[in-house]
Amino acid sequence: MKLISDGYGDPRYTLYIPLVMHRLSRPIDLPLLANELGKKLSVGVTISPGSGWEQLRMGPFAAEALANEAFHRTIRYLVALCVQCQYPIFFDQHLAQLIEPAMPMVIFPESPVDALANLACPVIIPEHRHVYDTGVLLGNVDPQLASHQLIDALGSASDLRGPLPARVRLAVEAYIVACATHAPMMKFVGFVICLESLCEQETRPSNELAALHTIRTAIENSDVAENDAVHAEMADLVLDTIRNIRHFSISTQFRKLIMAHAAGITAELGQGHPWLKDMKKAARTIYKMRSKIVHEGKWGAEYETVGMAMNFVKAAAKAVVLGLINGPSAKVSSVD
């Protein structure tokens, strides 16, 4: 661990924000970025290389509330930069909390540990306390490529000829984007989109289609829509729904895809993951979380569940894509 703060003097706070820059042929002028942010915030701003990222350092602030306000203003400035210029910069939009030791800790006789911080996340450091960096590297969460992995991956790749099918190409692109992003929710949704793009559109059995046709005909031949405008609108919505459910829902198709590749997913995850006992339930949970993120901007699940879901969907996407690019496409069978 490395000491971050001075640990003495009047209360004062420094804001750290790590930025992961997309390596383009014309990289952004980082000193100019720091200078312009300093002008907007009326505070000193520096930027320097971190452990896999560029570290913005802002302050000092006389109060933590001022540092917190500067963080949210900075996020708005960075968002404006990324969106206005269509320039990809990865940054976390949530402040991390300091870790307060449950029991007294001492690194050296004169250096107690008041708190621990993870500089891989945005965090406010109280300079008047002894705060240590936990030493978390970006490589702990990002893919890292060792020489033997490169050799093994190319060695196991299929020598099949011809282009990949269009849907598989889309799935591969979604998978790569999911691997690249540093936002956990977007990473999760990216892996789900990868799998969704591989789902087969399956029509319902003939007896169910016949029943839907009978129901639709009864509604069309009834005079319920003539009652008033509300009844007419609702009748149209019901008819639209009947037309749309001629095929199984995407959530059902997603579950079938997972079940069709259960062996590959199990091999990728190993036997220790608890969700392997019921992959149907796992698929339902993952798709429900995907909908929560997309429609409500939240996980809708406990922290432990989020971790298990992320591990599962990453392994599932990897297993399914590898299974499709290295051999014959697995046929999605009908599974309840």
Rank of each mutant, 00 (worst) to 15 (best):
W299R: 00
H261C: 11
P11M: 09
V192F: 00
E54K: 01
T181L: 02
P328L: 11
L138W: 14
T285W: 03
F71D: 14
F191A: 12
A316T: 06
L276P: 01
H213W: 06
A65I: 11
R255F: 05
A235K: 07
R161N: 11
P88C: 08
K281S: 15
V313W: 05
H273R: 07
Y303F: 12
K288D: 11
L276W: 07
V332T: 15
I151F: 12
M289P: 00
S249R: 14
L138C: 13
A263Q: 12
N244A: 15
Q93G: 07
E64H: 11
D240E: 15
Y13M: 10
K187I: 00
A174P: 00
A180M: 09
M308P: 01
F61H: 09
C82F: 04
A267C: 01
L138S: 15
E173Q: 15
P122A: 11
V224K: 08
C121M: 12
L98E: 03
S156C: 09
I176S: 06
I47G: 02
K187T: 01
T203F: 08
L15D: 12
Y175C: 01
V192R: 02
C82V: 13
D142F: 09
D236F: 05
S329I: 13
S5V: 07
C199P: 00
A235I: 02
H128C: 07
Y132T: 03
A319D: 09
V294E: 10
K39S: 11
H72T: 04
Q55S: 12
A62S: 15
V45M: 02
G327Y: 02
A282N: 06
L66Q: 15
